[in-house]
Design a protein around this nucleic acid. Structure first.
Lengths: 241, 241
DNA sequence: TTTAGATAGTGTAAAAAATACACTAAGATA
DNA sequence: TATCTTAGTGTATTTTTTACACTATCTAAA
């Protein structure tokens, strides 16, 4: 008897907890015009009206977190086959005006050139903004961005994630500039090239830049064989750590 | 009119989402008897009856995630001032028999000697188990443990987190053994000592081990001054990344 | 008290990795 | 053909990592 009551009490207590919502917010990084950018929307919710916000959505009852992130990427940008990794959960009490919404942050890496071709940017009124221009954001999105950028920096040093941001053919100056944009510090050209070349992960494609008003740089592509050998885990699509 | 309907539809759709529960699960690491251990319970929920489980609880409506983790640590072990860091969120659909429960994993580092003194272990029927002995666990807790251990390994290399696991006075062989237990690989004694000594983060306390049947090792303690200078962020209590 | 057993404690040389640094080469343009 | 702009290249130094073997100190047993 007493036990049954306890169980009922317990059940009610538990039910009381199934009142939160889970959302996923994606920090979508792109590298364009020699700058690191993030895809943002203009927030249409009080009290953050007009402020830049990340792309996110509530998690549906029949999808896991990775699936939700993948769906958001697809619905909001039309992109599939995206590199995604979870950053962490954010659950401050006052983080969302709608109620208790715990959000799981992901960062995504996309090739702006491929994405741009679909004209998706205007279609979904998403807007690329440089990292530097994002001072104030809706909700706790600035905090989420900071944590994501921090993780991206660590990952970029550890793994050749830059391949997820660059077009198929790229030059070494472009690659170095990408590093400098993400890490926000200048790198020595010769030491940088030495390190990249030791990885053996890129190969010349036998072409050069065109339409540049100076000496054109050689173009490279990822060495798929070496990539599969050393970093096969990066090829899971979508990648989830 | 149409707009109002849309909003209603939208609201219903949103309400439909506020049906998930958020939990926090803690991987509580301890170092004892020269082994890395995790504090576990015996699961009392079908279909995981009897399997080891992590210490966790639903997040209350008036606490954020870090607070929930801190509370769980306190309620279940009586410990305060714990080193805690979020690992990541786990949200597979079928991860909990009770319904949709997304859990946020934390790892905690505690000094087994201090904890043991309170006799909390038996009081809460928590049980220390070695990492190696945990083959099968309740829910997705094995996955959570693996992710937490992976993070702990990275952190241990980067920061002097071992100080959160060792007693106030410790020897260099103990310290090395801790590293070997966590990283699961042997280390060279001389190189290890060289590296530690270069950090300047420990100092001799002028005592030696007692009651050992061989040459006693010198005892060391953390150099608090150096700690504050170089790693002040580790002192936030509870630490949350 | 001597000896055996166990673990603590110590230094150096070689290899690898990181850093600092400045000029020539190639193409575009005036 | 001269100038501008960016691409591309090598070496020397320092720092970090690795490999490796013997002596010192204490306990305990003979």
């Amino acid at each position: 008897m007493e036990k049954a009551e306890n169980i009922n009490l317990h059940m009610r207590e538990i039910e009381d907890h199934f009142k939160a919502a889970i959302s996923v917010d994606c920090v979508i990084f792109g590298y364009d015009e020699s700058e690191l950018k993030v895809l943002t929307l203009d927030c249409n919710m009080d009290p953050y009206l007009g402020l830049p916000s990340l792309l996110g959505d509530l998690v549906k009852n029949d999808e896991n977190l990775d699936e939700a992130a993948t769906r958001i990427l697809y619905q909001r940008t039309g992109i599939t086959d995206v590199f995604l990794e979870q950053v962490k959960a954010f659950g401050e009490l006052d983080r969302h005006p709608m109620g208790r919404v715990v959000t799981i942050a992901y960062y995504a890496l996309i090739k702006v050139d491929e994405y741009g071709q679909n004209g998706m940017e205007s279609k979904h009124n998403a807007k690329w903004r440089t990292i530097g221009s994002l001072k104030e954001m809706a909700f706790d999105h600035k905090k989420i961005l900071n944590a994501s950028l921090h993780l991206l920096r660590k990952r970029l040093i550890e793994y050749p994630l830059w391949m997820k941001l660059l077009p198929e053919h790229f030059s070494l100056p472009e690659l170095q500039n990408l590093f400098e944009a993400v890490l926000a510090k200048p790198l020595d050209k010769r030491n940088f090239r030495k390190k990249i070349s030791k990885l053996g992960i890129i190969k010349e494609v036998g072409k050069k830049q065109e339409d540049v008003p100076h000496r054109p740089a050689k173009l490279y592509a990822v060495n798929e064989k070496k990539l599969r050998e050393d970093y096969s885990f990066l090829l899971k699509n979508p990648f989830v750590s």
